[in-house]
Write a protein that binds this DNA or RNA. Structure first.
Lengths: 193, 193
DNA sequence: TTCTTTTCTTAACTTAAGTGAACGTTTTCT
DNA sequence: AGAAAACGTTCACTTAAGTTAAGAAAAGAA
C-alpha cells in the first residue's frame, strides 16, 4: 500500500529511503468500510484523507435533502474545510465503497515540513495544481447546461458514472434525479435519430 | 503602494526589513488602464497578478459569446492556468477599471523561495486557503438557484454588484442578462408584498 | 455636443428543470 | 427467504430560465 503513496509523491519530488521510512513510521494507513461517515456537519475534525483505493463523498444536508458535491477516488486527497478554518464542518464525508486511505493532521504536517522542507514544496505544488483544477471545474459549471455536464462526466469520469448511485450523480451536476433520468432518455433518443 | 502589499503579507508571515527591500527591488508594480486585455485565449503567458487597486475579470468566449467566470479585486491574486500548466490559455483576462497590480512570474517565485523559504510557506498557506474557498464556491453553485446566488452576491459582494456591468454579473451566476433582470424585478415585487 | 454603441429592461414564446406521485426493481436487513 | 427500504424511471403539471425582438437609457467616441 505504501508503494502507491510513494509512487504518487514521486511524481512531484524524489524521496530518499530515509524519508520513506519516516513516512512509513507515521502509521497512517487505514481501511474504511462502505457507508462509514468520516465527518459530520457540525464536527471539528483535524483529519485529512488521501484515497489509495475506494471512494469518498462530500455532501450537505440542506432542507433535509442530501446534496452531493464531490467524489474523491484513487490518488485524490481531501483536506476538509474545518481542518483549515477551525470552524464546525458544514458538510459530511462518507465512504461509498470499502476503501483504503491515509489519515493525517496538521500537526503531523508541520512536523514533516520541519524535518523535510521538501514536503512543504510538495504540498504547495499540489495545492496550486488543485486550485487550478478547481477553478476550471467552477468555470465549466458556470458555462454549461446540466446535459453538457452529464456528457462531460461520461467523457472525463466514466468510472464515476458506473460506481456511483445515479441520484448522487444528479446532485453532483446540480439537478434532481428525475431530471437526470430525463436527460439520459433525451440523449438516447438523439443518438437513435 | 508597497505598504498595501506588505500589510497583506504580514497577515500570514512576518517580514524583515531585508525581505521588504528585496521585494521592493523586484520592481513589480504596474498601473493598468481600464479595458486593457492582460491575457488572451491561446496565449502562453507567465505573468501572475495581484490586485492592489481596481478589478480584473476572467472570461471565456464560447460560441461567440462572452462568459464571465470571475472578478478579482483589492488584495486578490490571480495565477492564470497557463502559467501553471504551460498550455495555451483557455480564457481572457481584462481590467474592467483603471487598476494597480503587481506582476510576477514563476522564475521570480523560485528565486524568492530559494532566498527566503518563508515565501514558499506563504504561498502554500495562501494556496490552501484559496483552494478551500474555491471548493465552497463550487459547492454553493451546485446547491443553489440563480436567484439564491444573486441574493448571496448582494450579501457577500455588494461592491461587485455596484462596480460591475449587469450582463457580466449575470454570466458570473450562470444565467443570461434577461434572466437577471427578471430575477431583480421578482425580488422587488416580493419585497413590496 | 451629437452620433453611435453598449447596456439594461420588458415582453411573448419556447425549452428544460422542479415537483409530486406512481410503480417496478434492486438492495439491504433480519 | 421474505419484508422493508432505497433506487431509478416515467408521467403530468408547474416554474423558471433561454430565445428573439424591441425600445429606452447610459456610456463612449468623433
Amino acid at each position: 500500500m505504501q508503494n502507491l503513496l510513494f509512487e504518487f509523491i514521486s511524481k512531484y519530488i524524489s524521496l530518499s529511503e530515509k524519508e520513506k521510512e519516516v513516512l512509513t513510521s507515521l502509521d497512517i494507513f487505514r481501511t474504511v468500510k462502505k457507508n462509514t461517515v468520516l465527518l459530520k456537519e457540525g464536527e471539528h475534525s483535524n483529519n485529512g484523507y488521501f484515497v489509495l483505493k475506494g471512494c469518498i463523498r462530500t455532501y450537505y444536508i440542506i432542507d433535509g435533502e442530501e446534496k452531493t458535491t464531490a467524489f474523491y477516488t484513487e490518488m485524490e486527497g481531501i483536506t476538509p474545510n474545518c481542518v483549515l478554518n477551525k470552524k464546525a464542518s458544514e458538510y459530511y464525508l462518507d465512504c461509498i465503497e470499502d476503501s483504503i486511505v491515509t489519515v493525517s493532521n496538521p500537526d503531523m504536517e508541520s512536523e514533516m515540513f520541519q524535518k523535510f522542507p521538501k514536503f512543504e514544496s510538495l504540498c504547495r505544488i499540489i495545492s496550486e495544481e488543485h486550485l487550478m483544477k478547481q477553478k476550471l471545474d467552477l468555470d465549466e459549471f458556470k458555462t454549461t447546461s446540466p446535459e453538457q455536464r452529464y456528457l462531460s462526466l461520461l467523457q472525463n469520469r466514466p468510472d464515476l458514472v458506473q460506481r456511483v448511485p445515479q441520484h448522487q450523480l444528479a446532485s453532483l451536476i446540480g439537478i434532481k434525479p428525475q431530471s437526470l433520468s430525463r436527460i439520459k432518455s433525451r440523449i438516447l433518443k438523439n443518438i437513435k435519430n
